[in-house]
Design a protein around this nucleic acid. Structure first.
Length: 111
DNA sequence: ATTCTGACGTGGG
DNA sequence: CCCCACGCCAGAA
């Protein structure tokens, strides 16, 4: 196959994640829904867990539906995920993204 | 093969 | 708003 192997669920997740604009965020469920696996939001999380080592997948822009950085514990260090977001101009207080609804990027709508 | 867990989401109370 | 139970599917023990 080409560079983009969309035959696997992980790759599909990565393809969507890569399209998240700078300074914007989305949720696991939103990606799962876009891929046709509405109830399988967890699988998106697994895909992210498997994307370690890929700097082309902005996993820090994917949070849960509440806008909380539930996966920050899986990044290097304890605050890397938050710092990456703040580096994009996103304000994070107590592991929660401020103005989440405003920064939310919905692949169903935008893509 | 069976059981449990996990970067989640939804629905009901 | 919070809390609880269930669904979901892949991978590890």
């Amino acid at each position: 196959m080409g560079v983009s192997d969309n035959s696997g669920f992980f790759e599909k997740v990565y393809e969507v994640a890569k399209k998240i604009p700078f300074g914007r965020v989305t949720s696991y469920g939103a990606i799962g829904k876009y891929l046709g696996s509405t109830g399988s939001a967890r699988m998106v999380g697994w895909a992210m867990n498997a994307c370690k080592g890929r700097d082309d997948v902005p996993a820090h822009r994917v949070v849960n539906r509440k806008g909380i950085l539930t996966g920050k514990h899986h990044f290097s260090g304890t605050n890397l995920m938050q710092q990456l977001l703040e580096n994009e101009g996103i304000e994070v207080i107590d592991n929660e993204i401020q103005d989440f609804e405003k920064l939310f990027w919905d692949p169903m709508k935008e893509l």
